[in-house]
């Protein structure tokens, strides 16, 4: 059991991070904290993708310098390299997340200018009072 937990520690960490982010998004009253939670949530998914690209011990980054021992030039032994595709996907996902963060912060600024506060309860009160 313990070994099972230990062997998949990357996944446990990803789940933990994701839940922290999820909790912050749902339970925190401050809008900036919600945004931070959103970012943690998204980062957890990035880490999940990255950690899937590893293939056991001894693999290296996928940069080809010379052909492997005994192999003909130009033939690559995929088992010696980490899978580069998840990294590439996550570069795109990071861009998407930065954009989301930017939009969310811009909207938070709009809210702050209108209501002079970032606390959800306060905003609700002020909307009810109609000021």
């Amino acid at each position: 059991m313990f070994e099972f937990l230990l062997r998949h520690y990357n996944y446990w960490m990803f789940i933990g991070l994701m839940m922290i982010g999820f909790y912050a998004m749902m339970a925190k009253k401050n809008l900036i904290k919600k945004i931070i939670g959103m970012n943690i949530f998204q980062s957890a998914i990035i880490l999940f993708f990255i950690s899937t690209s590893v293939k056991g011990g001894g693999v290296s980054v996928p940069i080809l310098q010379y052909a492997h021992k005994g192999a003909k030039a130009g033939i690559v032994d995929v088992m010696q390299y980490a899978n580069p595709l998840p990294h590439v996907l996550m570069l795109t996902a990071i861009v998407v997340m930065v954009a989301t963060l930017g939009v969310a912060l811009a909207v938070a600024i709009m809210i702050y200018r209108r209501y002079d506060t970032l606390e959800e309860d306060e905003i609700r009160l002020r909307r009810k009072r109609g000021s």
């Binding site: 998004m25 919600k34 949530f41 998204q42 998914i45 969310a104 938070a108 809210i111 909307r127």
Partner: peptide, 17 residues
């Protein structure tokens, strides 16, 4: 609208993730 939109951003991001 910004408040409604903020709620949409949070939920929409969870959906996309």
């Amino acid at each position: 609208a910004p408040v409604a939109c903020f709620r949409y951003i949070v939920m929409g991001t969870i959906g996309a993730c």
